[in-house]
Structure formats: C-alpha cells, structure tokens
Amino acid sequence: MTDRAVIPDFALEIRGLVKRFERPAVDGLDLNVRAGEFYALVGPNGAGKTTTLRIIAGLVRPDAGTIHVAGHDVLARPEAAKRVMAWISDEPMIYDKLTPREYLEFVAGLWDVAPAVAAARAAALLDWLDLEPHADERCEGFSKGMRQKVALAGALVHEPRVIILDEPLTGLDAGSARQVKTVLRDRVRAGGTVIMTTHILEVAERMADRIGIIARGKLIAEGTLEDLRRQAVSKVNANANGDASLEDTFLALTAEQAAAA
C-alpha cells in the first residue's frame, strides 16, 4: 500500500528526490511541509525550485526519491495525488478562446466536480477575484494579471488541499499581486496548504510561515525567518545579526554555494 492510511500531518513529504538533466537539477532533496502551512521555497536562479515543483505536480518524472502529497504517493498513484492539489505556473496557461466562466467549467469537468457545486464555486471565485464583469469575455485580450487570476480561479474551483505555485507574482501589478496574496492567505486560514517559489524575498518574508532555501538542488536551510537568521549566524557566521532581513540572510546562506558554482 503506497498511500498513508491516517490523515497525514504533512501536506507534502519528499525523500531523497533526484532529477538530473545535463547536471543534477535536484540532488537528494528532503522536504516536509505541514498541512495548513504557507511554505515558500527560495533560491538563486537554476537552484532547482521549478523542477522540484514540477515533479511534485506530476509534470516531470524524478530519477529517484519519493513524494507524498496529502498522504498520496505522487509516483505510484498520481491521479489520487492530483485530485487534492492544484498547480499554477509563472506563465498562466489558459485558453485564449474560452471565457473565464467556460475555463472554470472545463477545469471543474477535469476534476469531476458536480456541476451545481462547480457553478456556485465559480460564481464565488469570479466575484472574489473581480473577474465577474469579464466572466463572459474571451481571455485573448486579458492582461497578465487577469490571466493569472483566471488561472488561480481554475486552481481553486476544485477546492484543492494543496496549492503549488511557481513564481505566481511575476509580472503582476501591485493591485493584482495583493489580490493573489490575499487569496492565498485566505486559503491557508481555511486550512489549505500553499507551497510556492518566489524570487521576491519580501513576499516570502511577509507571507510564509516557513521558508526553505534551496541551492544546487539541495535544501540548505529551512525554518521561520528567525530560524534562518540563527542558521546564518551559526553556520556561516557572516554579518547576519538579529535584525537582518531575509535578503541578508539569504545572501549569507547561499554565499558558499555561489562561490562553489
């Protein structure tokens, strides 16, 4: 039996994850994210963040390791794992020729949500994300922010327990970014789990319960901002002090990796 029999404490459990392309993209990664947690994965360019998330979402097959999402083995029972999670990439992939309402109907169909339930949820999401006035317009003329909101609505219409986002705020204006952040925080308050990558360290600092720093495919530090500051002081020494920002801490923790690269 590959799925956990009891309700899992962890929304995500990764053990010994390895993925090589021409060089290792993910190199023996271990990661736990608790249910109901907002977890941010940060790291330099090419650190393996996106590859990790794509493996979790079932879009890339790893060379080694195990992944459980809400207790479901992603590799052995991908459909069960996919049923409880949603994936949003930095470049929202929606259909230009569908309207937001039709897009939500399509996504609800893929996740086999009952029509009445899906219609009610779609109406609420369209309203919540200020998409209602554009709900019956085709997406082809939409801005990046609007497209990202449509993709987000699609991710939420089947009420996933785990939402995985790759750089969700890239290219969004301040208003859209705030709206997306609010939606994600609300999901966490409602008991959902959010795992996202970001290179905007202030976002991770303000929003995440815990932050993981990944470099060269490995998790090099993890914890709350306080934990990370302590690790920076003890491990690297550096000049990190008690008031250091995540940016200072991040640079201190990744300096060794950057030098090795």
């Binding site: 979402a57 079932g58 879009l59 991908p78 459909e79 069960a80 794992a81 996919k82 049923r83 999670m85 949603a86 994936w87 990439s89 992939m93 929606i94 259909y95 230009d96 996504v107 893929l110 996740w111 086999d112 699609g154």
Partner: peptide, 12 residues
C-alpha cells in the same frame, strides 16, 4: 495551450 493544466488533472 494549457498542457500543465491537463497533465495535472486527476485522470490517467
């Protein structure tokens, strides 16, 4: 146009 969406849907 949305390969990720379709690939992450809970269907074989």
């Amino acid at each position: 146009d949305a390969p990720d969406l379709v690939a992450t849907a809970p269907i074989p």
